[in-house]
Structures are given as structure tokens and as C-alpha cells.
């Protein structure tokens, strides 16, 4: 399991609708405290002295309610109440509302080395964002050797042994206007146990391609921002492999074969590589076919149904004509 310190949280590169807008108010010495879960807690009950089931391992959010409660207490009561709360090993407190600079929480936070942060967002916005951000961070993840490309809006994970041509396929797909997410090192993570996401495993190597003979290419600089994406849901896995003559490849496509990563099943295709087979185009077609299936049209199944219907029709007609012949 990953660990995240409060300092890491401040350093997370969250953009636009995930920006937490945090700054430190007090308790800087406690920035190495670890946040262990993606949930947050409103400490209202704990402040009033009820500590049963107090979720002290979570980030504590002090919103308008908590601050108003503290404000109507006398300073001694307020300090007493916070002292009791801060005896627990809480990771940090985040203030989401207006507060006075001399309020007791800052004083006590400084004393117990518990980081007190503030955010410009209101409680509900902040709670939503931090649950998403921490959920992403704590999501089960795995780094695999593969290439991830968005083809016609479908996230396609290309797998296969080194030298089979994953990077070359990716390069051709990029020149055909598709987007690259990661090459060689893909970090998979599961969102709420249902959605399999993929992103570059490393900030530095992401959006770089290594092609034998050309070396390392920077896709962002070569093809522009239109050719890259930061992350993408994986909706199709294609395994490239040397054509094995004795092996039976799927000739019909009516079966739904899947591959499981992090407990999530994703449609899976084995694509044999052989001269005369243009892999990038096959990948494009596979992605389009996957989109058709998502829209409810399965070519193989429909083909089979039509075939059965025709055979049935033919049989009754044959029967009918045969009977007529007898008359």
C-alpha cells in the first residue's frame, strides 16, 4: 500500500477540477505525518466530547459548523476540547471556512505538531475533490510492460514481447491521428473496482517512444499536444505475438474473451503478427469494432443470427416445394 504524507499531499500536482488550493497555516513540524485512507471526517461529535468510533486516521475537516461550535465556547473550553481531539494521532486538519488568526486551533496545532491547513474551497467542494484525489492515489495499481494508445476514443493496451513492434505500431497510430498515453511502462490503476485506468508510470519517461534505429522520440514535441493524453480508461487489450502456425486464432469473433487486471475484466484479442498484416490498421479496426459492440451491435453475433434464420427459411421452403412436387 502506498503511503502519503501531508507534505506529499501538498506537493501533488492536481489540476483544474482537482486543485485542492491548500496552504499551511500551522504545525509545519508535523508535515511528515502519514495519511492512511482516502476518507475524510467532520470532527463535530468529537469536539463535543463524543469519541466512540472517532475516525482519527482520517483527514479532519473543520467547516463552518465546527468553527461556529468552537467560537461559542470560552477559550478554556475550546482549548480543552481541541486538546482532547489532538491526543489522537490525526494526520492533519483542514479548515474550509473563515477563521480568526488567533483561534485556539492554530495554537494547539502548533503545540502538538499537527499540521493545520486551509483551503479556499468550501467544505462540500473540498470533500468531493479530496476523496477523488486520494481515491486515485490509493487505488490498487500495477506497472506492466505494454503500450497504451487511444484509438477512435477507445483506450487500447498493446502487449507483446520486446521487439514484436508495439512502439512501431504506436508510432504509426500516432501519425494516423490517434493519441498516445504511455509506451513501454504503463501504470494500471482501478477506480472503484470497476474502471481500469492506465497512465504513464513515470513523469519523466511519459510520452516518449523508444524505436529501434531512431532512439528516443518525444511525441509531445514531434506531433504536438493533440497527439498525447495523460490517462485513459482501458477498454480493449490486444496481445501481439509471432504467428504460430499450429495455434488456433479466433476466426469468428463471437466469443467474448477477456483478460483480468486488478480484478477488472477487459475484452482481449490475440493478434498474430506476420508479414502482409498491417498491424496499426488491424488495431484501428479492432477499436472501431469494439465501439460497435459497445453501441450494441455485434457483427459476429448478428451474422450468425441471420445465417440461422436463412437456414431455417430455406428448410421450410425446401419442405414446402418438396411436398408440392409430390402432388
Amino acid at each position: 500500500m502506498n503511503t502519503l504524507t501531508v507534505l506529499d499531499l501538498l506537493g501533488l500536482n492536481c489540476k483544474s477540477n482537482k486543485d485542492l488550493k491548500l496552504s499551511v497555516v500551522a504545525g509545519r513540524k508535523g508535515l511528515a505525518r502519514e495519511i492512511g485512507t482516502s476518507y475524510v471526517n467532520r470532527p463535530g461529535l468529537a469536539l463535543s466530547g463524543f469519541f466512540d468510533q472517532f475516525a482519527h486516521d482520517r483527514i479532519q475537516i473543520f467547516g463552518r459548523g465546527e468553527l461556529a461550535y468552537l467560537k461559542q465556547l470560552s477559550r478554556e473550553q475550546c482549548i480543552d476540547s481541541l486538546e482532547k481531539l489532538f491526543r489522537y494521532p490525526i494526520p492533519c486538519c483542514i479548515i474550509t471556512s473563515e477563521y480568526d488568526d488567533d483561534s485556539a486551533i492554530i495554537e494547539i496545532g502548533e503545540k502538538h505538531n499537527i499540521p493545520i491547513l486551509k483551503t479556499e474551497l468550501n467544505s462540500s467542494d473540498f470533500a468531493l475533490r479530496i476523496i477523488t484525489v486520494l481515491g486515485d492515489y490509493f487505488a490498487p495499481s500495477e506497472i506492466i510492460h505494454a503500450t497504451l494508445i487511444e484509438v477512435f476514443g477507445i483506450g487500447v493496451l498493446l502487449q507483446g514481447d520486446s521487439g514484436i513492434g508495439k512502439s512501431e505500431t504506436a508510432l504509426e497510430l500516432i501519425t494516423r491521428g490517434h493519441r498516445m498515453i504511455a509506451d513501454d511502462a504503463v501504470k494500471l490503476y482501478a477506480l472503484s473496482g470497476e474502471i481500469l485506468m492506465g497512465t504513464g508510470a513515470n513523469e519523466v519517461t511519459r510520452h516518449h517512444l523508444e524505436v529501434r534505429g531512431l532512439g528516443i522520440l518525444n511525441v509531445n514535441h514531434l506531433f504536438g499536444v493533440g497527439a498525447i493524453r495523460e490517462k485513459k480508461q482501458i477498454q480493449l487489450i490486444i496481445h501481439l505475438e509471432e504467428w504460430a502456425p499450429q495455434k488456433n486464432y479466433d476466426r469468428f469473433g463471437a466469443q467474448d474473451i477477456t483478460k483480468t487486471y486488478l480484478g477488472i475484466d477487459t475484452p482481449f484479442i490475440e493478434l498474430p503478427v506476420k508479414s502482409g498484416r498491417n498491424i496499426p490498421i488491424l488495431v484501428e479496426i479492432a477499436a472501431m469494432n469494439e465501439r460497435l459492440k459497445k453501441l450494441g451491435y455485434n457483427a459476429a453475433r448478428e451474422f450468425n443470427e441471420n445465417m440461422l434464420e436463412w437456414l431455417e427459411n430455406k428448410r421450410t421452403r425446401d419442405l414446402y416445394f418438396k411436398n408440392e412436387d409430390q402432388f
Partner: peptide
């Protein structure tokens, strides 16, 4: 606990 293929430059660099 991260095991990677030693035939890929990119993924070796990812090890850090």
C-alpha cells in the same frame, strides 16, 4: 515489489 522486463529501456528508467 516491482518486477520489470530488462529488455525495455523505458521501463528500466521507470525503476528510478
Amino acid at each position: 515489489d516491482l518486477q520489470i522486463n530488462a529488455r525495455s529501456i523505458m521501463i528500466i528508467l521507470t525503476l528510478g
